[in-house]
């Protein structure tokens, strides 16, 4: 789990370089909230705090949550999401190993539903508020700094552009677009990819899951792109925009809330990719990864049952 945190660091740093102090502060806040809440719950449940806190899964949950959160969301949004993820999703379901849903993602979706406004604010890449302003914004004073944080993500730009009946070739003239996907943000995606490769090399995660996820996403988007390239983004864009890379290597590889059988895990990956694409393309939210993950979390027990490996002698 420590290695997972390490693999996240380059991406987080790059994210902070593009989006400013908010990223770092949200990460630190999330870790603080998560470890505190986790310790309290462990104490109440009379579980040895030390071993369970230091297995590192809490920190990974906190980091993943903070990355999903918008960097300039108020601190209570952060706390609410962590509290929901750690206390309700993780511990009310029985603690480490028992949770049906991925705590980070469940926490994020909870915040997204509770505070849609606060979570939709992103600065323009490179043009972010200073450190003190950031603290003020996170402290809840964002209305005073509307200009600095009025930016949009590449996916929301695409969505609203398509909504206004524009063609992708037009929309991609927007300054938020870069070479592959979002200007600058595509770099973050590239670093998630690099972190993922590190985890595969260190044998922390297995390569099959991300490959199936990215492959499925690539194929679906290729089909639609080939069908109508003016209204459906290219496969490369799909892979590098939004949370695709992060999900591929860090979220759907989380074992507890995924299927436990080898075949089940692959179906889990493919299913997440399909739902993510559907929600992203035809849903109301710019990015669908989080919802897709929850849907698949929900179906994991079913996948387990359907793909139970043959046991010896049952052939």
């Amino acid at each position: 789990m420590l290695q997972v945190s390490i693999a996240l660091v380059p991406g987080i740093l790059c994210y902070a370089w593009i989006m400013g102090w908010g990223v770092i502060l949200q990460c630190l806040l999330a870790i603080l909230f998560a470890t505190t809440l986790e310790s309290i719950v462990l104490l109440i449940r009379r579980i040895p705090v030390k071993a369970f806190l230091f297995d590192g899964s809490t920190v990974v949950t906190a980091l993943l949550f903070a990355i999903c959160l918008s960097p300039y969301a108020p601190w209570w949004a952060n706390l609410a999401g962590i509290a929901f993820g750690v206390v309700v999703i993780k511990h009310c379901y029985g603690g480490l190993g028992q949770n049906i849903f991925n705590p980070a993602i469940a926490g994020y979706v909870f915040t997204l539903l509770c505070f849609p406004m606060e979570l939709s604010i992103y600065p323009d890449p490179g043009n972010y508020p200073g450190f003190l302003d950031t603290i003020r914004i996170i402290n809840g004073n964002f209305p005073h700094y509307p200009d600095a944080i009025a930016g949009a993500t590449v996916l929301s730009t695409l969505k609203s552009g398509l909504h206004d009946m524009k063609m992708i070739s037009e929309i991609s003239q927007s300054p938020v677009f870069g070479v592959l996907a979002g200007r600058s943000t595509e770099w973050i995606a590239a670093l998630w990819f690099a972190g993922g490769i590190f985890l595969i090399v260190r044998k922390i995660i297995k390569w099959q899951v991300p490959v199936v996820f990215l492959g499925t996403m690539f194929l679906i988007s290729l089909v639609f792109y080939w069908f109508d390239s003016s209204h459906y983004p290219s496969p490369v864009f799909t892979l590098f925009a939004g949370g695709s890379m992060l999900a591929a290597f860090f979220i759907i590889t989380e074992p507890v809330s995924s299927s436990t059988t080898p075949a089940g895990r692959l179906l889990f990956a493919a299913g997440t990719a399909i739902f993510a694409y559907i929600i992203r393309t035809w849903g109301n939210y710019p990015d669908g990864i989080a919802f897709a993950v929850l849907i698949m979390n929900f179906s994991a027990p079913l996948l387990d049952r359907l793909t139970r490996p043959r046991v010896l002698g049952e052939r």
Partner: peptide
């Protein structure tokens, strides 16, 4: 190390030479 809860990683089933489901 300390015994922790099972995280359903499935590693055990992958190495079981009898093809059981240790988890």
């Amino acid at each position: 190390g300390t015994e922790m809860p099972c995280i359903r990683c499935g590693n055990c089933a992958e190495v079981c030479p009898v093809e059981l489901l240790p988890q």
